[in-house]
Design a protein around this nucleic acid. Structure first.
Lengths: 249, 249
DNA sequence: CGTCCAAATTGATCCATATCAATCTCGTAC
DNA sequence: GTACGAGATTGATATGGATCAATTTGGACG
C-alpha cells in the first residue's frame, strides 16, 4: 500500500471554506460569498495532529485559534502542582482557543484525542478581518459568549448535580453535537477515555465506570469500551435536570 | 434632610468617562482622547439600583452590557426547577452581561447586592463602535476571554478543591479586586451573604459558616458578620493551591 | 427600647462518592 | 499465538461535607 494518492491538479494550498462541510458550524456563518474568500485568505488549513499530540500548550505564545475539521481535541489546564483539569472537549466545527485571547500564552493545553485535522486562524489577521466585517465580529462575540455560558453550565453541573446527572448530561451533550454533524445521535464512539470524562466532570474514574454499568443495567445505554448506544434518550433527559452544552455556534 | 443636593449647572446627562476613576479598569482601556468621547456618546451613565433590585433577568431581551460604577452585582442562573446557581460577583470596574451576547434574552439574572450604580452600553452601538475601533474590539475580546478563564477556574475550584480551599480562594480573589481599586486588601466588607457564597462555591451555608470560624480559630482571618479582616494572607495562599480570579480586565 | 424575622452559627447524624485494592479486558508488539 | 501494560471494571472501606435540628445574632421597624 505504498501508493500515494495523487494530488489533484490545482488543488489549492490555501483554504477552501466553500467546500468545507462544517462551514455553517464554525466561523463563516452566514457571511457573503466574497467575505468567505477573505476568510479563506487568512486561514491555514489542513494541519494534522496524531493522537496524543499537542496543538498548543500553556507555554506556547498565543498566535491562533483553531477550528476542528475532523477528529477531536481535549483542552485542559495544568496547575503548578501538575494536576490536570479538563476544561472541554472540542468536536468538528468547534473553535478552540477563545479562552486565550487575553494573554501572551495560551490559557490551556490542547491535545488531539485522535488523528485530528484543524484550520488555523492567526489571531492578528482574524481581528483585522472582524474589524472590517460586522457579521463576522458579531459571530465572534457570539462564539465567545457561548463559551462563557458553557463554562457556567459546567460549573453548575459540578456544584449541584450528582454523578449520574453529570454523566447523563455529558452523554446528551455529545449526542446533540453528533446530531448537528448529521451523525447518529444514539450510536457513537466516545473520543475520550474514562479518565478524561472523570476529570472533566469532577469525579473519580471508578465512579464513572460504576455509573456506566448502572445505566447499562437500567437499560438506558449500551456501552462496550468507547462504543456507546443511547437506548433511552428520554430517560437520560429525566436524569439530567439541567445542562445542555451546545458546543460551538 | 429633605434638602436636595443642587444639580450642578452644565452637568452633562451623557457620560463622562474622562472623569471616571474606573476608566482604566472597564472598557475604555488605553484608547485615545477622541475615542473616549465616542464611547461617551453611546454609554448611558448613572442608572442606580437599590439593594435587591434586578438590573436584568433571564426573561429580559438582551440589549446592553453594564459596567459597575459603584456597589456590586450578583449574577445567577435560575433553572426550571427554581434552583439558583450564582455564576459571579461583579465589583466596580467590571463588566456584566458578556455571557449574554449569543441569545435573544439575557443568559442570567443580575441583582444588585447593595445600592449600585452602573453604566449601560447598548450592545448594537457597542458592536458598531468596536467595528470602527480596533483597540476597543481587542479589549472586548480580552474581557470575554478573561471571563471564560474565570469560569474555567471556578469549574476547577468546584471539581478539585475542598471547602477550605474554595473559601480561601474567594477571599483572596476579593482581596485582590479591592486592592485594584486602591482599597484595603486586608480589611473589607463582603458584599454578599453567606448563602450567596455557599451557592457560588457549591457548598452548604453551614459549611461556609464552619470554615469561617475554623479560619478564625487558626488566626487566618477575623470575621464579624460581613466585615472581614485577613490576618495571614500568606497562609490563605497556602490553603489555596490554585485559583486566582482576576476579575475584569 | 423592645419586637420580630432573616441570616448565621453550632451540633449530631448520614450518605454519596473518594480512596484503596484487586482483578479483568483488550489492543499492541513480539 | 502469546505476553505485556494501560485502561477499565468491580468490591470494600473511609470521609468530607450535606442534611436535619436547634439556637443565637443582628438589623429593621414600630
Amino acid at each position: 500500500m505504498a501508493q500515494a494518492i495523487p494530488i489533484r491538479k490545482n488543488s489549492p494550498l490555501k483554504a477552501s471554506c466553500h467546500q468545507c462541510s462544517l462551514s455553517n458550524l464554525c466561523l463563516p456563518l452566514a457571511i457573503e460569498e466574497n467575505d468567505l474568500e477573505r476568510l479563506e485568505d487568512i486561514v491555514q488549513q489542513g494541519r494534522i495532529f496524531n493522537r496524543g499530540e499537542h496543538i498548543f500548550d500553556q507555554s506556547t505564545p498565543f498566535r491562533s485559534c483553531f477550528a476542528v475539521k475532523s477528529g477531536s481535541i481535549k483542552t485542559s489546564i495544568i496547575t503548578e502542582g501538575g494536576e490536570e483539569q479538563v476544561t472541554g472537549f472540542f468536536m468538528p466545527g468547534e473553535l478552540v482557543g477563545l479562552d486565550s485571547m487575553s494573554g501572551e500564552t495560551y490559557a490551556c493545553t490542547a491535545k488531539a484525542l485522535e488523528r485530528t485535522s484543524v484550520c488555523e486562524f492567526p489571531i492578528e489577521k482574524l481581528e483585522e478581518l472582524t474589524g472590517k466585517m460586522p457579521e463576522l465580529q458579531h459571530h465572534m462575540y457570539h462564539l465567545m459568549s457561548q463559551e462563557i455560558q458553557n463554562s457556567h453550565q459546567l460549573a453548575m453541573l459540578l456544584s449541584k448535580n450528582t454523578a449520574e446527572e453529570r454523566i447523563a448530561a455529558l452523554l446528551l451533550s455529545l449526542s446533540s453535537r453528533f446530531q448537528r454533524r448529521r451523525l447518529s445521535p444514539t450510536n457513537f464512539s466516545l473520543p475520550m477515555a474514562r479518565n478524561d470524562i472523570a476529570n472533566f466532570l469532577g469525579l473519580a474514574v471508578e465512579t464513572v465506570s460504576r455509573v456506566f454499568t448502572r445505566f447499562q443495567n437500567q437499560g438506558l445505554i449500551r456501552a462496550r469500551g468507547r462504543e456507546v448506544e443511547l437506548l433511552d434518550v428520554e430517560a437520560l433527559q429525566t436524569v439530567t435536570r439541567e445542562f445542555s452544552r451546545q458546543g460551538c455556534q
